[in-house]
Design a protein around this nucleic acid. Sequence first.
DNA 1: AATGAATGTCGTATATTTGCGACACACTTC
DNA 2: GAAGTGTGTCGCAAATATACGACATTCATT
Lengths: 116, 116
Amino acid sequence: MTYAKTAAFTEEQQQLARVAKALAHPARIAIIQLLASKQTCISGDIAAELPLSRTTVSQHLQELKALDLIRGEIEGLTVCYCLNTDLLKQVHQQFTAFFIEATTGGACGPADACAC
Amino acid sequence: MTYAKTAAFTEEQQQLARVAKALAHPARIAIIQLLASKQTCISGDIAAELPLSRTTVSQHLQELKALDLIRGEIEGLTVCYCLNTDLLKQVHQQFTAFFIEATTGGACGPADACAC
DNA sequence: AATGAATGTCGTATATTTGCGACACACTTC
DNA sequence: GAAGTGTGTCGCAAATATACGACATTCATT
């Protein structure tokens, strides 16, 4: 990034970009979907279900955990990860607001060909 | 990425990750918001409104255009960019489906502490 | 205490992203 | 046609992301 001028953007924009970056990898999408499907918050089984090494999966988990999108609880020898649904709902609202802002308002459709 | 094992993931997961990556930078978020606010699809004025050089902004625009999230039409000397609202609505639905899938289902809240 | 299993962290190699200056191209205007 | 303006592309440098093997750590089990 060569020194991201992140300070020059809105906190809202940065927050949105942060979450988007967390979702910007198929593996992390898959992890979230996996956690959503299995009601039991599995631990290292995640690594077994993905075509990646345990090390890599662990790093993806840490990234998601750093944003608090998922949470891990030590359960004896294993670690149980689970989705932070409250935060996910909040993020969903942020994205929805963004998309609504972007999709309302007259876009130049294929017909009106830019009102410049 | 060191050779992304992208082939191992669902096309749906890859698509979602692709779009998320496009939104994974505050500048691109800002660009989309800017295009949404100005009904006239401005061109290089975008660069003037962002704390980045024209070159960098141009690259961000190309990235968004590569995913067809925005479109550019040459209008004489200037280029008019505008949002592809149809695609954006579609993407919004994809994200919504993903988030709903992720937020429904009993997450281990702070109380039930993982049903492992 | 010793062994084994499950995780996370560290170090490293490679690929990608980010940002920008320098240049080339297209078009308008004089 | 010459000069000027608006855009995109190319090449480079620095920062990140990605992936994984090798270790360290923690806990259960014997």
